[in-house]
């Protein structure tokens, strides 16, 4: 899976959670591409951060996942969505698996 939440942002200079969200919902690249009316290869490029989507495509993704655009794309590395939602930093948990 092309995780582009941390590390290098790819050619687009953007970080994104598309791969994580897609895996979480069990959606294939082809399914997502069909829903958005793009080629499945474009989903791969988006996930790797090698392509900056148009506003239309970004809002399409936002609508598809039911999340705001800033929850999917960021110019800075993205942390786990759960940590953002609950306001807890997972690295502070010491890997004990509890809040």
């Amino acid at each position: 899976m092309a995780d582009n939440t941390k590390g290098a942002p790819g050619e687009s200079g953007l970080y994104n959670r598309i791969a994580v969200l897609r895996a979480e919902r069990g959606v294939s690249r082809q399914d997502l591409a069909d829903a958005l009316g793009v080629n499945y290869q474009t989903i791969g490029f988006l996930e790797r951060g090698d392509y900056s989507p148009s506003l239309k495509l970004a809002f399409g993704l936002s609508e598809y996942f039911g999340l705001p655009v800033e929850a999917i794309f960021s110019t800075r590395p993205l942390g786990p969505l759960s940590a953002q939602v609950y306001g807890v930093r997972t690295e502070n948990l010491g890997g004990k698996g509890h809040a």
């Binding site: 069909d34 009316g37 793009v38 080629n39 474009t42 490029f45 392509y51 989507p53 148009s54 239309k56 495509l57």
Partner: peptide, 10 residues
């Protein structure tokens, strides 16, 4: 048919 259409990236 879908493959023949170009999307925005293409």
């Amino acid at each position: 048919d879908a493959d023949l259409r170009l999307d925005e990236r293409e």
